[in-house]
Amino acid sequence: MTGPQPCHGAAKVAARDQLLTARRRRSLTDVGAAARAIADHLLAAPEVRRAATVAAYVSVGTEPGTTSLLDRLVDAGKRVVLPVLLPDNDLDWAAYHGPTSLAPARRGLLEPVGAPLGLDAVATADVVLVPGLAVSREGMRLGRGGGSYDRALARVPVGTFTCVLLYDDEVLPDVPAEPHDRPVSAAATPGGVLRFR
């Protein structure tokens, strides 16, 4: 199958519940090992090595961890921008300058405290790293359902390296998708970087 598959919202809800349950069962040791492996793979990827600006995010809970990745990107001389969740679930962006540049925000998130760069700042990134719960082999990403990253990805120029960070077993043959869902060009897992197109 290719492209978005028609679905009812119930299929997405069921898939999200299943994936979140599986994530909650992961040990902190597994989460930490996955974070290190994903960071190693991404920092070795030619798209990331060439990038001047990387749009990323601060992981929460049992998401594949990004804390070390963010600092390693900064240490490698990359400009890192992180999302700031707006009341309408859209994403503004601000620069990351290390852990002390983050503050607690709504929904248990950590966000950068610097000056907002605007909704379109994501379009200036050479690499866009996004969260997700799963991805299909064609690059259709299943997120948490707020639509924030689908809106952000709609602003990213075609050809930009867009990559979802996942565990190996979250790359699936298919995921429920709708026409507004935006595909990504790759997935980074502990097993490596999988490019879709």
Rank of each mutant, 00 (worst) to 15 (best):
T2C: 12
S136P: 01
S148I: 09
L91G: 01
L153Q: 09
Q5Y: 01
S27C: 12
D120I: 05
I38F: 06
V31A: 09
L129N: 04
P112T: 12
P116M: 12
E178D: 10
E63G: 01
V122G: 02
R107I: 07
G65M: 04
P87T: 12
E138Q: 13
G108N: 11
Q5L: 14
C7D: 08
V80G: 00
G65Y: 09
A37V: 06
R16C: 08
D90P: 01
S68N: 13
G192A: 09
W93P: 04
K78R: 11
R50C: 12
V48E: 04
L119Q: 04
Y149H: 11
R50G: 14
G132E: 04
A15K: 15
P173C: 15
A45S: 08
Y167M: 11
R144V: 06
R25T: 06
A95M: 07
A15Q: 14
T189K: 00
R141I: 07
T162M: 03
H8I: 00
V158W: 02
R137W: 14
A187P: 02
P83G: 03
V127H: 02
A44T: 05
R197G: 10
P6N: 14
I38K: 05
R155T: 11
T29E: 14
V156T: 04
L117T: 00
V122C: 03
P176S: 12
L119A: 08
V135Q: 03
